[in-house]
Design a protein around this nucleic acid. Structure first.
Lengths: 206, 206, 206, 206
DNA sequence: CATGAATGAGGGTTCATTCAT
DNA sequence: CATGAATGAACCCTCATTCAT
């Protein structure tokens, strides 16, 4: 109802919606990494994406939706982590993926760990925590399938509960995330986490 | 003890500072448990403590300070968890404390774990994340000393890196916290976390 | 008339400007009826008209202009109401038109009255209130001419001030509009408004 | 969660809550009169009240509540209008109150008419239109009781439907409001509305 | 003619913090 | 010690309008 006259013309080239959307999702992850979910304000996201705040709402219907899109992108990274391993032996592949995880944690900003744990503990916000749990369940399945494959191969003892090993693997990943988040570098740097994975896998070996 | 005149509304009696402070800290933990750190507003804290908002600032100089005081209180609970175990064998004590941790997680809202993980992931807020890391380091020492005691006792293999086992134990605790936070009940309920601890301790046994 | 290929999605065919304009005006009335003037946003209007938002500005230079066009359309309906009465006796015609007005009010959402009163009270917006007043003045003339005709016919007492009776007739119409708008159904349903018109006309009868 | 440090101290003397509330309600009426309900923004209201925007929310929980409080204040004016008449004859009192209404309309900004009709047509906003209807129902009762009193006195014909006369009286008031709102000064200034009331009351006289 | 991505001012609301009482 | 009214920056989101396509 107010007289809104945007006298200054659009500075940003028009972009296909999907491309702009991707820009925004990237901006979400960047901002969440740097500031955490609660401080991932729309104004910061817009600035990081190089668009006006209003533009965010052309592509997403709410801040929550942007955050969830960011979370989805993180899951895709996790998926990439798992799928990029070509190790045929499932047990060794679990180790291989774990090592990739460790390396990713050591990169700048802890790879996807930062935003991911931020999401987990973002507080019981609208839909966000549920979305996070869903992500975990999807991750669970990814690992679980490797475990099953290992049992079929005979690389993993057949009397082992697949859920059990999957939980253990995830515990390892969580611990790396947490320690990374808290700046407790020792855990990764000194090979402690790596050795935890060894213990877990040793127990699983056929 | 004076009888409160029912005619005069029960205005908040002047209280010794320490007592009022405690009230407020309790309120902080309650609010953080229910709403998470970002939603732990001063107005909610004041309401939960039964005082006016201004009163908070008589006892704390900022909201961050209140949160950190809450975090400290949580560490004290963790301390209680460890110290309440009278198991003489250090290895068994590690198991005992782990079991107490599991039980605590299973209570409504995960005992102190809930606010604790909320703190961890509260984002890089002023001073808060550093305070959380400090808490972890203190917790590390608590467990580390049990480990050392175990090695002195001969219950834990002497060639084991104490840091390593301590990290592993903490990984277990973190995993329980995370799964609790995400509502992934299976991990605790079906004994998966308990079995992870078994693997860890088996590896450590002398 | 060309057959729309079902394979090519029905993109909005180029339309003669006047036709498109009419579509938009219809949409304005629909949206104003449902949501009121303040909530008659360009996005809602565009959606109701089945065009893109930008298209609105091909045919109108501002939202205010669209609203005024809608208001004009309403006056045309009012005109239709008056002109559709073929009652030769002017006094009876006043009654007849009043009855049509009452019936129109009773239809879903009060016929054109709904958007019309919305316009009246849309607040002193740019140009809108002035346009509304103009509409009223035009309506005044419509009724006033019937009154004059009645006096010429001898159906209405010649000593009556034509303005007076016209105002009274409009008062009746306003009251019906207002009560309709406020959901005070009694006024129309129980014949109160009708009886008010009777009193007014009785006083005017020659 | 943001660092909010209001460095500039409060400029406004602390005031009893009820007094500040009244200030705000007055500001609401002023702003609504000048700009209409849709443009009665919190920022304008705050400015008119001479307080910060945040202060509004210390005393009201939402803009809607402020508007409804304004509406209530208007009803109180209407009540004052009715109660200030000491005319013992109920029929004459109806005339007297009508005259006061007319005079009020003629004062700057149409007395309460402006905000009142603004409210009526504020669009189907949350609770607002319902609140307006309630106000009308209360006004209806005020007039209805005078009518009943008149019948008891014998000043008003006993076979007259009290509801009917009450509706007629309200129609008069509505018409004055509407014309005032639309700037159609003739209706009031030239005594047309006054004469409408005469017709209505003549019909009611015993 | 028609589109729809982009804009940025402004909307209502919340918040940590202050200070006169 | 305790209060709570007052603050204003920042929050998320909506809007009328523009213009390259």
């Amino acid at each position: 109802m107010t007289v809104n006259s945007p006298l200054i013309p659009a500075r940003n080239r028009r972009l296909p919606a999907s491309e702009r959307r991707q820009q925004i999702v990237d901006a979400v992850l960047k901002v969440v990494s740097e500031h955490g979910v609660p401080e991932a304000t729309t104004s910061r996201i817009a600035e990081a994406a190089g668009v006006a705040e209003g533009t965010l709402y052309v592509h997403f219907s709410s801040r929550a939706e942007m955050l969830i899109a960011g979370l989805d992108a993180i899951f895709m990274q996790m998926l990439g982590l798992v799928e990029s391993s070509t190790e045929p032996d499932a047990l060794l592949r679990l180790k291989d993926v774990a090592e990739r995880h460790t390396r990713l944690m050591s990169t700048e900003q802890g790879g996807f760990a930062y935003p991911w744990v931020e999401f987990i503990a973002a507080g019981p916000q609208v839909g966000l925590r549920e979305a996070v749990a869903q992500t975990q369940i999807r991750a669970f399945r990814l690992i679980w399938e490797i475990v099953e494959e290992g049992k079929a191969q005979g690389a993993i003892r057949s009397d082992l509960d697949s859920d059990q090993l999957t939980w253990e693997w995830l515990s390892f990943a969580w611990a790396e995330n947490m320690s990374c988040l808290m700046g407790l570098d020792d855990f990764l740097a000194n090979g402690h986490s790596s050795r935890l994975m060894d213990i877990i896998l040793k127990d699983a070996r056929a």
